[in-house]
């Protein structure tokens, strides 16, 4: 089996391209898996949950976010572009005054932050917001 110079170059390029795209695909798969584990594969609506996040965050180490989902029992927050997409899960007890919570999170870079609320009736709702990050917050 003899390769011409042209064929060899082409193969090398293809292998390089595959290597570049692999890590990104790995992240996408884990966050999709995480959502499926939370919802159990149920359909996700879009109304009923609000995610408040800044449009631009200068420092990815502390990005203030706030979630609000009236009638929710649980809210899952995911950062799709982080090395591990999980951020936090808020479970609201019987004495919760409202289904609102605020915290500060780390973002590795510009990415989508997603909040998925599990409603008391078992349905799910999702909201997402893109945050532009100037300095990433995951070290390394």
């Amino acid at each position: 089996m003899n390769f011409t110079r042209r064929e060899t170059l082409g193969l090398g390029l293809a292998a390089g391209a595959a290597a570049v795209f692999l890590p990104y695909r790995a992240f996408a798969a884990t966050s999709a898996d995480r959502i499926a584990a939370f919802t159990g594969g149920a359909a996700i609506g879009s109304a009923g949950v609000t995610l408040t996040a800044p449009e631009i965050a200068e420092n990815g180490n502390t990005v203030p976010i706030s979630v609000d989902a009236p009638g929710a029992t649980e809210i899952l927050v995911l950062a799709m572009g982080n090395p591990s997409p999980d951020v936090a899960t808020f479970k609201f007890g019987p004495l919760a005054g409202s289904q609102v919570a605020s915290t500060r999170i780390r973002l590795a870079g510009t990415q989508d932050v997603v909040a998925i609320a599990k409603m008391a009736d078992g349905s799910f709702a999702q909201a997402s917001s893109t945050v532009k990050v100037t300095i990433g917050g995951c070290g390394g």
Binding site: N61, T62, V63, S66, A79, N82, S84, D86, V87, A88, T89, F90, K91, F92, G93, P94, L95, A96, G97, S98, V100, A101, S102, T103, R104, I105, R106, L107, G137
Partner: peptide, 21 residues
């Protein structure tokens, strides 16, 4: 009686802050 129960991952910032009702 429970008010809120938060599961935290490494993506929560240094000096974790929470605000809730």
């Amino acid at each position: 009686e429970n008010v809120i129960d938060v599961t935290m991952e490494p993506a929560i910032s240094t000096n974790p802050y929470f605000e809730f009702d």
